[in-house]
Write a protein that binds this DNA or RNA. Structure first.
Lengths: 129, 129
DNA sequence: AAGAATCAATACCATATTGGTATGCTATAG
DNA sequence: CTATAGCATACCAATATGGTATTGATTCTT
C-alpha cells in the first residue's frame, strides 16, 4: 500500500511521452500511444495544465507540451498537481484535523518522514524515470 | 496525498502507547487512553497480533504487549501489517497487473522510488516517533 | 466448577473516494 | 466560417475504507 492514484500514475506516463517527443501533441495522439482512454487523458491533461506542468494550445494543430525540460520536472510536482500536497497523514498537511490529535504525539515524527519522502520524490526527475 | 490509512495511523498510536507502558494492556484501556473507538482498537490489534507485531493474552488480566522493544519495531513493519506490502504503484508489487504495462516503461523507476521510501520507513523505529 | 473478563473471528453497513465517461462551450488556424 | 482541439463541469459505477456488531473461545479467580 501507500499507493499513488491511477490518474497520477497515468499523468507520469503522459508527461514522459510529452517529454520524449518534445513537440505539441494532441490528446488523441496521447491516448493512442499510451493506451490510456481518451476521456481520461483529457481529464489528466487539464489538471496538469491548470497546475502549470504543461502548456496547452487550442484550435487546429493544438495540443499540449511540457512547460519545462523533462529533466527539470520532478515526480513530486506531477504528483501534487494530480493529488494535492504530499501528506502521509492528516496531521502533516492541515495542521491536524484528526480527531485524536489532542492525545497523539506522533505528528512531529510524521512530518519528518513526510519531508524525507518529499525529498526523494523531488530529487527524481521525469527523465530519471 | 500519498496518505496512509487511518487504521494504520491508529495502529502506530496504539503501538506507541504499548511501548510506553511496557506491560500487558487491555483493549479497553487502549481505547480510553488513545480515544480511538473500542471496536476499532479491537480490529487493529487483531491484525497486529496476526502479523506478530504484538503478543496477545486471553482471559482475565489479558491484553496485548509489543512483541519486541519499541526501538526495534519499524514504522514499515506496522504499516505493512495493516495495509499489506508497500507498493507505490500496481506494477511494483504484483509484477504488473496494470492495463497499460505493455506500453509503459516507468516500472523500473517506480521500483527504485519504492525501495527508497521503504528504506526511510524501515530506518524509523517506533521509539523514533 | 462456575462465572467473569478478555481476545478471536467474521460479517455487516454506510460513506467517501476514485476511475472513468459524457456533454456543451470556447478558442484558433486556415 | 468552419473544422479542430482544448475547457469546464457534471455525472455515474465500483471499490475501498472506516467503523460497528455479534458469537465463540480461552483463561483467571474464587
Amino acid at each position: 500500500m501507500l499507493k499513488i492514484g491511477k490518474l497520477a500514475d497515468y499523468a507520469l506516463v503522459l508527461a514522459e511521452y510529452l517529454g520524449s517527443t518534445g513537440r505539441i501533441v494532441a490528446i488523441s495522439e496521447l491516448s493512442q500511444e499510451t493506451h490510456i482512454p481518451l476521456a481520461t487523458v483529457r481529464k489528466i491533461l487539464l489538471r496538469l495544465s491548470q497546475n502549470g506542468i504543461v502548456y496547452s494550445y487550442r484550435g487546429v494543430n493544438g495540443g499540449y507540451e511540457l512547460a519545462k525540460a523533462a529533466s527539470s520536472i520532478t515526480v513530486v510536482e506531477i504528483l501534487e498537481a494530480m493529488e494535492g500536497p504530499l501528506s502521509i497523514t492528516e496531521c502533516v498537511s492541515t495542521g491536524s484535523e484528526c480527531k485524536i490529535s489532542k492525545y497523539c504525539n506522533l505528528q512531529r515524527g510524521w512530518c519528518s518522514i513526510n519531508e524525507k519522502i518529499f525529498s526523494i520524490l523531488s530529487r527524481t526527475s521525469l527523465s530519471d524515470l
